[in-house]
Amino acid sequence: MMEKMIIGRYVPADSLLHRMDPRSKLILVFLFVGVIFLANNFWTYGILLIYTLLMAGFSKIPPRFLIGGLKPVLWLVIFTFFLHLFLTREGAVIFDLGWFKIYEEGLRQGIFISMRFFLLILITSLLTLTTTPIEITDGLERLLGPLKKLKFPVHELALMMSIALRFIPTLMQETDKIMKAQTARGVEYTSGPIKERLKAVVPLLIPLFISSFKRAEELAVAMEARGYKGGEGRTKYRQLSWSTVDTLMILLLLAVTVLLIVFRG
C-alpha cells in the first residue's frame, strides 16, 4: 500500500546526480530553497521549472515513477492552490457567482505558491533519491564542520539525521504490515466513510509508536555494544571528492539566480 512513496527513498543508479559530491548537492538544495523566493512572475517561474525538470532529467529516475511517488504530496499542492484561489481578495474579479468571487490575484497566487511548493518538493526528493542517507550525513557533517569550533554538536546532529532518514523505509514497511494485520481484522483503510477511516488511524499509530520506541532502544544498545561513542577521533571510511561537475552545477544554479534577478518583476 505504501510501496509507491518515494520520500526519503534512495534509487540506486549511475547518473550525473548520483555521481555528484553530496556536499555540492546539499549546497544546491539549500541555495535553491532561497533562490525560489526570487521568482515572482511567469518568466521567472518558467526558468525555475525548466531548471528543475533538467535536474530531474539528469537523475535518470523514470518520470513515471517520480510522478507516481509524488502523488500523495500532490494533494497538498492542490489544496494550497485552492486555498489561495478562494481566500485572496485582490485584483480584478475574473469569476463572479454573486456570493462567491475569484480574483485575478488569487489565481496568480494559487498557481505561484503551489508551483513553488511543488518545485521544492521535487528538488528535495531528487536529493534523497540520488544520495544515500550515509552520503547525506557525511556531506552535512563536513559542511557544518566549522561550527564544531563553536561547540555545536555537528556529529550528533548528522547522526540523528541519518538515523531518521534510515528508518523512514523501515517505518513504511512497518506501517504496511500493521495496516494489513488490521485490515485482516476488518478495518478499511482504502474505502468507506471519512469518519471511519480517521478512526482507523488509532489501531495503526499505537502499534507503530510502540515498535518505534522499542527499535530506538535496541538501536542504542546495539551501538553501545559495538563501542560507538560519538564523533571524537572517529575516522572516515568514505572519502568525499569534489569534481568539476560539482563546480559546474553550482555555477549553473548561480546563472539561474542571475537570470531570476534580471527577469523578476
Binding site: 500493521i178 494489513k180 488490521q182 485490515t183 481484522r185 476488518g186 489501531p203 510502540i210
Partner: peptide, 20 residues
C-alpha cells in the same frame, strides 16, 4: 472485501505487534 476477511482470518507473524 470485508466479507472475505470475516471468513478468512489471518494470524500474522508476530501478531502481538498489532495489539493496541
Amino acid at each position: 472485501l470485508k466479507g472475505i476477511r470475516e471468513k478468512v482470518g489471518i494470524v500474522f507473524q508476530f501478531p502481538e505487534h498489532q495489539l493496541f
